[in-house]
C-alpha cells in the first residue's frame, strides 16, 4: 500500500450540548497519512486538540469495521462521505486530495436531536423497531428450524433488507428527512419470511404510524437514501412497504 501525507482544512460543526447553539470551527491538519480511516483522522485531530488544551470533537463510533452503525457524519454534503457503500469508519483518506477542505456536519433531522458536536440521538429508530419490528415469539417452544422450507432466493432477498445497520444515513441524506428506507427494510425482511406472516399487517401499520409520530418527513421518492446507504439497501424495500401498508390499511 502506497501512502502519502496530505494536509486538510476541516470545518466541523461544534455544539456544546443539545441546548446550545452550534457553529462551524475551522482546523487545519497536516501530515495526514492517506492510509488512515476518516475516524483515525479525527482521532489525530482530537489528540492535537487535547494537547493544546482544547475540547476534542465528540463523535460516535464503535466497531470501526462498518457493521455496528454507530458512526456517521455528513462530509461535504454527503452522508458517510463520497465513497459508495462505505461507512465513515471504512472511508479512507486516500479518497481525498492534498489541500482539500472538508465540511463535517452531524446527521441532521428533526427526529435526531444533537447531543454534542457530531453525536446525535437516533433513539427514534429504536422506537420504530419497538413498534413492531419483530416476530412475537417467546424463547423456547419454537419448531425445528427446518420445519418450514424457505426458498433460497427468498432468504437472500430478506437478507438484503436485513443487512441494514441502522446508522441513519438514509434519513440524514433524504431531502425530506424521511425514514422510509430504514422502516421499509425491516418490514420487508419480515414480510418476506413465513415467520413474519401472522403479524404482517399489524407490523406495517404500527411501524409506519410510529415512524410518522417520531417526526420524520414524508418520502417523495428522491432515491437519496439508497445512494448513501452503506449496505446498498434498495428502495424496492420502500415499494414493498408501500404495498404492505396500503394492504394493511385498506383490508385491515
Amino acid at each position: 500500500m502506497n501512502t502519502k501525507s496530505i494536509s486538510l482544512t476541516l470545518e466541523i460543526w461544534r455544539q456544546k450540548d443539545s441546548k446550545s447553539k452550534g457553529d462551524f470551527e475551522t482546523y487545519s491538519l497536516e501530515n495526514i497519512s492517506t492510509g488512515m480511516s476518516f475516524l483515525e483522522m479525527l482521532d489525530v485531530l482530537n489528540e492535537t486538540l487535547t494537547g493544546r488544551g482544547l475540547d476534542p470533537v465528540a463523535f460516535d463510533h464503535d466497531c470501526r469495521e462498518g457493521i455496528c452503525g454507530m458512526c456517521g457524519a455528513v462530509i461535504n454534503g454527503i452522508a458517510h462521505g463520497p465513497e459508495p457503500e462505505t461507512t465513515l469508519c471504512q472511508l479512507h483518506m486516500r479518497h481525498f486530495n492534498d489541500g482539500d477542505t472538508l465540511v463535517i456536519e452531524p446527521f441532521r433531522s428533526r427526529a435526531f436531536p444533537i447531543h454534542k458536536d457530531l453525536v446525535t440521538d437516533r433513539s427514534a429508530l429504536d422506537r420504530i423497531i419497538q413498534a413492531g419490528g419483530y416476530v412475537s415469539v417467546n424463547t423456547g417452544g419454537t419448531p425445528d428450524g427446518n420445519t418450514i422450507p424457505i426458498p433460497s432466493a427468498t432468504a437472500e432477498l430478506s437478507m438484503d433488507a436485513a443487512a441494514c445497520i441502522g446508522c441513519g444515513a438514509c434519513i440524514a441524506s433524504c431531502p425530506n428527512g424521511a425514514a422510509m428506507l430504514f422502516t421499509g427494510a425491516k418490514i420487508s425482511q419480515l414480510s418476506l419470511l413465513p415467520q413474519g406472516q401472522p403479524e404482517r399487517k399489524q407490523r406495517a401499520m404500527a411501524m409506519v404510524t410510529t415512524m410518522d409520530k417520531e417526526g420524520f418527513g414524508n418520502c417523495t421518492n428522491e432515491r437519496e437514501c439508497e445512494a448513501v446507504c452503506p449496505k446498498g439497501i434498495s428502495i424496492t424495500n420502500i415499494a414493498r412497504m408501500n404495498r404492505e401498508f396500503v394492504k394493511a390499511a385498506m383490508l385491515g
Binding site: I150, P151, Q195, G196
Partner: peptide
C-alpha cells in the same frame, strides 16, 4: 433464531 425471522442461508 429461525422463528424470530433471522434470514439464515438456505
Amino acid at each position: 433464531c429461525v422463528a424470530q425471522g433471522v434470514p439464515f442461508a438456505r
